Simulated assay, not measured.
Amino acid sequence: MVDDLSAALSKLECRVALLEKTPAAAAGKSAPHKSRALVKEEDNDDDIDLFGSDEDDDEAEKLKEQRLKEYAEKKAKKPALIAKSSILLDVKPWDDETDMVKLEECVRSIQTDGLLWGTSKQVPVGYGIKKLQIACVVDISYLLFQVQSVDVAAFNKI
């Protein structure tokens, strides 16, 4: 019975040594035939090329060059557009007593070449204070007595 337990313990030590990637010879035990077969299979994995071969790289490089050339031709055909910017402004009043409808009228009264006012809405800030959020292409910071500050909330190239 002691011999059977010793043999079972020896097999377990060999398996643990294989799992820890330590050689069974370093532990002073010989590995069973089954484990040696597993080690040989692991050694055979070196033949697998996980990253592809050089032939694939040449084909991929040719394909990349072709796509870049097609993209450049397509880009050259497009007419150059005049870039405009769409700006979403947050106009914050000094306090909750500011008439937001009148403030929006004052803001929209600003007229400049190239100015196009878009949609607007009142967004709650806190403590009953609302800010005016309005889309435009202009600077409105000169309304000194009604506007505390102007921040660009969003900026998109069109």
Rank of each mutant, 00 (worst) to 15 (best):
D96T: 11
D96Q: 13
D57P: 03
K77C: 06
L68C: 07
L63E: 12
M100A: 11
S109P: 01
M100G: 08
L63I: 06
E73H: 05
P93I: 06
L88D: 11
Q66W: 06
Q66M: 04
A72Q: 13
D54P: 03
A72G: 01
Y71K: 15
E70A: 05
A83V: 12
M100R: 10
A76I: 02
C106I: 08
V91M: 09
E70R: 06
E105N: 14
K92V: 15
W94M: 07
D57W: 03
L89G: 01
L63P: 00
A83E: 13
E105W: 09
E73N: 09
L63G: 05
K74F: 13
K69Y: 14
S53D: 11
S53G: 14
E97A: 12
K75W: 08
K84L: 13
E70Q: 08
L88Q: 14
D96F: 14
S53A: 10
E65I: 00
A60T: 01
E55G: 07
E73W: 01
S85D: 14
L81A: 14
K78E: 13
A76F: 10
K78A: 10
E59K: 05
E97K: 14
L103R: 04
E73V: 00
E59Q: 08
K102N: 12
A72K: 13
I82C: 09
S53P: 04
L103H: 03
C106A: 12
D56V: 00
S53H: 03
E61V: 02
S86Q: 12
V101H: 13
S109L: 10
L81N: 12
K102G: 02
Q66T: 00
R67S: 04
D57M: 04
K74E: 11
P79Q: 05
A72E: 13
E59I: 04
D57G: 02
S53V: 00
T98N: 08
K69D: 15
V91S: 02
I82W: 08
K64Y: 09
I87L: 15
A83R: 12
A60K: 06
E61H: 04
L68Q: 13
K92P: 01
L81Y: 11
K64H: 07
I87A: 07
D90W: 00
P79E: 07
L103T: 04
K75D: 11
K84M: 11
D96C: 10
A80M: 08
K77N: 03
D57V: 02
A76W: 05
W94N: 07
S53K: 06
D58H: 02
P93W: 08
A80L: 12
S85R: 14
